[in-house]
């Protein structure tokens, strides 16, 4: 089973502590190291990336470390990878060509 760290109680994502395979169960742990949930990864999520702990609708803020660090541009179901394919900056986007390059290099499954 995979593990993911939720940094703050207000967060709607957790960061996976090792590569997670599609369909793998992921234990969500708090900053106090308590198990707070167990969810299924809807797609492969590489180490250091974020799994959605709640469904996000377009325009919803992505909350990590207790602060808004981006917004959803597509529906993000619980258990999906929250990253450049469905999240954008609130201030300054990275260039679209770079986003395509990241999606290609990471082999991100897009719906």
């Amino acid at each position: 089973m995979g593990k993911a760290l939720r940094l703050d109680g207000a967060d709607n994502v957790a960061t996976v502590l090792a590569d997670v395979a599609k369909g793998e169960r992921v234990q969500i742990i708090s900053d106090q190291n308590e198990i707070i949930a167990e969810i299924e990864a809807l797609q492969a999520i590489p180490f250091g990336n974020k799994i959605a702990l709640a469904p996000l609708h377009p325009g919803d803020h992505l909350i990590k470390g207790g602060a808004a660090v981006g917004k959803a541009i597509k529906p993000v179901p619980l258990g999906q990878l929250a990253h450049v394919q469905n999240i954008r900056s609130l201030n300054l986007d990275i260039p679209e060509t770079m986003i395509r390059e990241i999606i290609t290099q990471m082999n991100i499954e897009e719906d």
Partner: peptide, 12 residues
Amino acid sequence: VGNSIGGLTTIE
């Protein structure tokens, strides 16, 4: 690109 592959999605 390396930052992003490592898991960072936005500059924030």
